[in-house]
């Protein structure tokens, strides 16, 4: 519950922000935050840094594009109440399959294997025209109208984003306290011991990835509505690394870190142009990432936490 309260300031945004800040800054940050949350979940509780989260999000996005309204002549349209559950199922399934492939890999091995899977999917979407429309991908994707409210309007869309963000945070925090969630953490700490108390580890690892796929999928659906298009570049190395950067900058130890990192990333991405050459954004983000990794391995969330605890301990000295 407490962690969802963190999103409260985001809920107040509509009272004073214009549509640009509402959607381009806060909306986009929350969407990227949800996808990064799926990475943070795997990193914090399974102990695996996965590079395939943009891929799982992309699977949901492509499902929405293929079965929803689009302006390319690929796919078949179905009502949104069929498409949305289908997209979630596909994303969860993609997570499970990736988990099955990577189940025996930990640490740096898992990084390499999930990265290879992510890039293989990118090449696949680029070459396949029947389902992914290759290089061009899908455009003209529209968010549906539900009960007379169009989700393409900034305010309803933003409210949906914040609702989904809060639900995802609550899901993660509830799930890690469930028997399966505890077992996932036990596998992180001592996989052989989990076997020794009679629990096979493969289903546990696969369900952790599947759960991550579910979270990434919710972000993926919102993202494809936000972008209104999807192509192989949406699942390419750029987004893959962006999601990692967000999660690392925010901090891999706590689910909230994903949203902190996403907000920092979007603010940098949007306003860096004011003080550096737009072209050099990658150098800037690379330097920020390097500084965080070298100076604050627990990310902005870790920094904020240590500042807060210092403030709580010695309120008087902090004034100096």
């Amino acid at each position: 519950m407490k962690s969802a309260l963190f999103l409260l300031p985001f809920a107040l945004v509509p009272f004073f922000a214009n549509d640009f800040w509402l959607v381009q800054i806060f909306g986009r940050a929350l969407i990227l935050g949800i996808i990064a949350l799926s990475l943070t979940f795997l990193a914090a509780y399974l102990g695996v840094v996965s590079f395939a989260q943009a891929t799982m999000a992309g699977v949901a996005g492509y499902t929405v594009a293929y079965f929803g309204p689009n302006t390319v002549d690929v796919g078949r349209e179905m009502p949104f109440f069929v498409v949305l559950p289908l997209a979630m199922i596909m994303a969860t399934l993609s997570g499970a399959i990736i988990g099955l492939i990577a189940r025996r890999s930990q640490g740096i091995y898992a990084i390499m294997i999930t990265l290879a899977i992510g890039v293989a999917f990118f090449y696949f979407t680029r070459q396949n025209y029947n389902y992914f429309n290759g290089w061009t991908g899908f455009s003209g994707i529209r968010a549906p109208e539900i009960a007379g409210t169009s989700l393409r309007e900034p305010l309803p869309f933003y409210l949906l984003i914040i609702l989904v963000s809060a639900l995802c945070l609550l899901f993660v925090n509830g799930f890690i306290k469930s028997p399966l969630g505890l077992t996932i953490q036990a596998v992180r700490d001592a996989p052989k011991r989990v076997l020794a108390i009679g629990i096979p580890t493969t289903p546990v690892i696969v369900s952790a990835y599947a759960f991550a796929g579910f979270i990434a999928g919710s972000g993926g659906i919102l993202n494809v509505w936000y972008q209104e298009r999807i192509s192989s570049f949406s699942v390419g190395l750029g987004p893959i690394v962006d999601i990692l950067v967000i999660a690392v900058i925010g901090g891999l130890k706590n689910p909230i870190g994903a949203f902190i990192g996403a907000l920092a990333f979007v603010l940098l991405d949007t306003f860096a142009v004011d003080f550096i050459d737009r072209e050099r954004f990658n150098t800037l983000i690379g330097l920020v990432l390097l500084a965080i990794i070298m100076g604050a391995p627990d990310g902005l969330h870790g920094l904020a936490k240590s500042w807060l605890s210092r403030f709580k301990k010695r309120p008087s000295e902090n004034q100096v």
């Binding site: 840094v49 640490g107 740096i108 990084i111 690394v241 990692l244 690392v248 072209e279 050099r280 990658n282 150098t283 983000i285 690379g286 330097l287 990432l289 390097l290 990794i293 070298m294 391995p297």
Partner: peptide
């Protein structure tokens, strides 16, 4: 190792961008 890997990713982003420049 994990931190090294992440740092080398940051380095590769920076290097690629500077070479592009």
């Amino acid at each position: 190792e994990l931190r090294q890997t992440l740092a080398s990713i940051a380095l590769s982003i920076i290097m690629a961008d500077l070479m592009l420049w």
